[in-house]
Every structure is written in structure tokens, then in C-alpha cells.
Computed example of a mutant assay.
Amino acid sequence: MKILVTGAAGTIGQVAMVGLADRGHTVVGLDRVPAPEGYDESTNDWHTADCADADAVADVFAVHRLDAVVHLAGNPGEASLPDSLTSHVVTTAALLDAMVEHGVTRIVHASSNHAVGRTPRRELLGIDTPPRPDTFYGVAKVAAEALLSLYADRHGIDAVACRIGSFQPQPESVRQLSTWLSPDDCVRMFEAGLTAPSPGYAVLYGISANTRAWWDLEPGRRLGYQPQDDAEEFAQLVAASPQDEDEAAHVGGAFVGESMQRPALDRA
């Protein structure tokens, strides 16, 4: 399978590029920055462009006969509402339009737990939980998921939205003992999203097989995602913090706090 990975220079993007290549796929990187040091750009498998630029995205699709897209590009932090929508929704739209034009029918999208981040903590959160974003970042992820659903219905695209928890080499807080996604499980998740038979539009929670998991892994397992790692392995290394109680009150953790609040629009 020939796969376009957007945000390929990012933390998750670099893991995806290597991990998917190790699984036998041909990967093409797309990012606003040049390829990381050591990457062989002579292969023509790296493109430096902004995913919000629909013409630039279309040019990449014209160069390669792609089979699928793993969309990881986007600002992982909070920004103004217009900037967040551009970063997560406009980029997704540019890719979906190019997919329709070039007959590419599979996309795996890096959504976020912050699409439901304002949801109070309960025993196990399912994918049927209504959207309840905690930030403009979360709002943009909700909108991107809606756009994927529209293109699945309108154009028959298979779109898997992965509501990623806390991607780290290892968990670094008590919250992350519940929300951690390991690098190896991240690749397993993308592989499942790319190969699940006819998922249509589907949502899964992107976490490892954590003993303390807050989110239901069964929807991902139905798509073939079988996580192997458990944050509990690192529990003895994670120190308690005064912030732990607040971070456990809502599924979005610190994104619910006042420090993340800002006006929707930047004004001069």
C-alpha cells in the first residue's frame, strides 16, 4: 500500500513513517518543514507544503498513485478558532477533495480525546458519547470528524477517526496511566485503520491496552486494532501530583482548565 503521511516531521508522524515502512508499506511524507536529517529526499517521497493549500495538496496526489492517507498534520495545541479550524478542518478538506479527484478511498485521521474532553469522568467512555469539546482545538477535531463522515456518506470514502489520548514514549503522569498510547500501539492502530474491511466512517479511541483505561477499546478491536502495551508497566515510575485530581475530573484533563481559555478571535 502506498500511503501519504501528513505531518510527517512531527512526533507521531516520524513514528508512523518508520513503523508503516517496516510493515511493508511505501510511505510518502508531507509537512510544512523539510524532511528530518538523514531522510533521503532523492526518492521523491517527501513533499514540503502546507496541507491547508489545496493546490499544493493536489500536486502531491498528481505525482503519486496513492492508496491511502494518514492525516497527522495540525497544531496539537490551542490557538484561535480560525487558526484551529484551518489547521484541522481546512487541511482535512483539502486532502478529502484530492482523494475524491484521484480515486483514493481510505483515510486514517488523527482526531483527539479533546473532541469529548469536557465530558465528566465515568467508568468507561464509548464512541457513542456526544461531542463535548474542551477547547477550540477540540471544536476543530469535532468538525473534522463531521467532515470525514460527510465524505464517507457522499463519496464512499472509508474514514477512521482515531481519538488519540496521550502519545508518549512512556506515561509521565497519573492521567497518562489511563490515556497513554505507546509508539508501537500507535503504528498498530494506523495499520488497523488502513486495512479494516470497509469500515465506512468509524471512530476508535487511540490508547494502549491500559489497565486503568478511561475509554472503551472495543470499537478499535472490531476494526482490527489489538493494542499490546499497558501503561501499568510504568506505574511505579509515575509520581503523584497536586494536579492529578483536577486532571481526572474530565476526560480532557488540563485542557478543561482556565489556563486553556482564550477568546475565539484574535483582535488587533
Rank of each mutant, 00 (worst) to 15 (best):
P34D: 14
V108M: 08
Y39K: 04
A16I: 12
A73Q: 02
V57Q: 04
A98H: 05
A98Y: 06
H25G: 09
D40C: 01
D59Y: 01
V89N: 03
D59F: 04
H71M: 04
E41C: 10
E37P: 06
H25Q: 08
S80G: 10
V108G: 12
G77S: 12
H88D: 06
A58R: 14
A62T: 08
N75R: 08
G38E: 08
P36C: 09
T92H: 06
D67W: 04
E78R: 11
A79E: 11
A73M: 00
V100H: 05
S84M: 13
D50V: 07
A110H: 01
V108N: 10
D59G: 13
D83E: 15
L85M: 15
E101R: 14
A79N: 13
S42F: 06
S42A: 15
A49V: 11
L30S: 03
T91C: 12
A79F: 02
D67F: 02
R32I: 15
G24P: 07
Y39R: 06
G103I: 13
D97N: 14
V57T: 10
H71L: 03
T26L: 09
H88F: 04
C51I: 15
T92Y: 00
A93D: 09
G74Y: 05
E41Q: 11
P82E: 11
S80I: 01
E41K: 09
A68F: 10
D45N: 13
A54L: 12
A21L: 03
G38V: 08
